[in-house]
Amino acid sequence: MRTRTGMILGTVFFSWVASSFAVINTDTALSPAKGQTILRTQYSLTHTGDDPTDQNRSMVVQTVKQVVVYGFTQSTAGFFVVPYLDKDLRTFSNGQRVSRETSGFGDIKLFLKQRLFRKDAPGMTTRLAILGGLEVPTGEQRSSDGLGRLPAAVRISSGSWDPFAGVVFTRQSQWYEFSQDLVYQVNTGHRDLHLGDVLQHDTGVWLRVWPQESPEWQAPRALHAVLELNGVWQAKHRSGGTLKDFGGYTLFLSPGLQFVTSRWLLEASVQVPAVESLNGNELGTDWTVVAGVRTTF
């Protein structure tokens, strides 16, 4: 069962930083103003399957993620991310189809984002920022159910203190945005399992499809068409030695829509794997649906 761990954790890691006004699953170099708060609630449903073994395994992960962003200064923002996860692994045990379920609050993430570069023009901005923080093992660490020891993939918490850092570039106008991020997380390991490090790279673009340009138009509301490429690479896990059936690389193609006003943002996205190169018997992601809302005050 451990062969699922990498991809499921990768999915949880996925799309966690885009909390200011930005594309859906890609981070942004835009930060809130000093004293401004942004709340983001995101629901995601991920289905994994395509089991290369004869166990016909599949798994559904539902995540509700709450993100709080606060502007400490005009160039420094703090982020607090707490997920609630529900995992349901379907597999065979003694010839019977069984479900291994668990749910609860996952590991929180705390990090800072510091803007390094800003160039503003009328209706347009270009920015570069760095970020760094820590994933804290606050999640529920339930390790067994009625069927015995829980597979690592079904567990809620990694159990380890995991630092991460990254860089993000954004160019945004009233007509489009282009963002590129690169984030690396070092997984430090817990007890007998040391998860592989994670490298995430995202490229996101939105284009305003409504309203069209007109002399009268001045209200801050718009509908955006979003297209992203979200890549996750994870190293093989270690437990005594290197485990060959863990980790790999997946590149998701993620079309979506956003409707945004000056206070609210509604969004939805579908992520499907475009490139998948997984190690050994690692399970792949079939699809992920993401829906969310953001507000600022």
């Binding site: 006004f21 103003a33 000093k34 209706g123 347009m124 509301r221 945004v260 600022t296």
Partner: peptide
């Protein structure tokens, strides 16, 4: 300069509305 998203409007109006001399904003 730099107002490139609808959220930016709220960002910019919030501190300006805290200036007591100002009234009746239009962005």
């Amino acid at each position: 300069d730099g107002i490139s998203c609808p959220f930016c409007v709220f960002n910019i109006e919030k501190p300006l509305k805290a200036i007591s001399a100002l009234d009746s904003f239009r962005t």
